[in-house]
């Protein structure tokens, strides 16, 4: 099936099998491998991207569902002027170790502070409930997100 969507500002048209998971479309067809796959059950959040500006788990969507959507992946954040403020905050707070959960965690965090501008530390923790990290113990992730929140 033909789909057309905007990914990181570029229009992409492609022919996909309806069963194709959005994450596989991004990774295997568009070569955007920054978005990772960590589970089968939408529990871990490693595949989190922005769909029309809001976080979504790209392993829990079919590519055909994203037809017409505006997608942002981790590759779409940093520009000529450097890292996105959330990426920079993760760097400065040592909020990543192995880095596998990081793209999803960063995307979820960007969406989180947009959706809930007044979060305290507990709110950040609750808001990141759907993104698992096995390395950091989360303390520095929370610190990073709080440093960016509006």
């Amino acid at each position: 099936m033909e789909i057309s969507l905007t990914v990181n500002g570029d229009t992409q048209s492609a022919d996909v099998e309806p069963r194709t998971l959005l994450v596989h479309f991004l990774r295997d067809q568009l070569g955007l491998t920054g978005t990772n796959i960590g589970c089968d059950t939408s529990s871990c959040g490693a595949c989190t991207i922005l769909v029309d500006g809001q976080s979504a788990k790209s392993c829990n969507l079919l590519a055909v569902q994203a037809d017409g959507a505006e997608i942002t992946t981790i590759e779409g954040l940093a520009g000529a002027d450097g890292l996105h403020p959330m990426q920079q905050a993760f760097h400065e707070s040592h909020a990543l170790q192995c880095g596998y959960c990081t793209p999803g965690m960063v995307m979820a965090s960007i969406s989180l502070v947009e959706e809930y501008p007044n979060l305290d530390a507990d709110g950040v923790r609750e808001g990141l409930e759907g993104n698992l990290c096995r390395c950091t113990g989360y303390q520095n992730i929370v610190k990073a997100v709080l440093s960016v929140k509006k």
Partner: peptide, 9 residues
């Protein structure tokens, strides 16, 4: 329900 990403969809 779920988490924010689930709630968006």
């Amino acid at each position: 329900v779920g988490d924010p990403a689930i709630r968006h969809r």
